[in-house]
């Protein structure tokens, strides 16, 4: 591991960074278009089941995207456009549940799942490892032990 030349790793890192930086585009031309695109990705299509307005290929969806772009060009804010759409199509047009009321649990449960899962796993691992801990020698191997270990590992790999 540590013998990988630093220059090689840095070169790889910089090459990756340059490639990505080249690929990332400059900022888009018109804010109204970007706002309209963003909003169409934040609402569900009234015309394609289970799909955002942005992803819906129907002609009616194209027309609604055009209306949103028109509002964006007229200087409407994101909230005003979303409110207008909600008034017209109902609350279920928003693609994210609200972080309150009926929508709250949608957000809470995934966090609970991750937190509880990791806590439980940590508790189990800690409990099991504590039982075994006194039997173990925690000293790190000496350089000679490390060298012998490398050599034996190499032999073991060769035999696999």
């Amino acid at each position: 591991m540590k013998r990988i030349p630093a220059a090689v790793t840095l070169t790889i890192a910089i090459a990756i960074a340059i490639a990505i930086a080249v690929a990332a585009p400059a900022a888009g031309a018109g804010p109204p278009e970007d706002l309209a695109n963003r909003i169409s990705g934040e609402i569900m299509s009234p015309y394609c089941p289970g799909v955002t307005l942005h992803d819906c290929p129907s002609d009616a969806a194209v027309e609604l995207r055009g209306r949103i772009l028109g509002w964006a060009r007229d200087g409407w804010s994101r909230e005003r456009i979303l409110d207008r759409l909600e008034a017209e199509y109902g609350a279920s047009i928003r693609s994210t549940p609200p972080a309150s009321g009926a929508g709250l649990w949608a957000w809470v449960m995934p966090a609970v799942a991750v937190g509880a899962g990791l806590l439980a796993a940590t508790a189990v691992a800690r409990r099991w490892s504590r039982r075994r801990a006194p039997e173990q020698n925690l000293d790190e191997p000496t350089p000679s032990q490390r060298s012998r270990l490398d050599s034996e590992l190499a032999q073991a790999r060769e035999q696999l």
């Binding site: 990705g41 934040e42 569900m44 955002t52 109902g90 609350a91 279920s92 047009i93 928003r94 693609s95 994210t96 549940p97 009321g101 009926a102 929508g103 649990w105 949608a106």
Partner: peptide, 16 residues
């Protein structure tokens, strides 16, 4: 689940 429990129609889409 939300509609069954609260009677509220909600959508859960890609941003969520």
């Amino acid at each position: 689940i939300a509609e069954a429990v609260t009677g509220t129609r909600l959508s859960v889409g890609p941003p969520f």
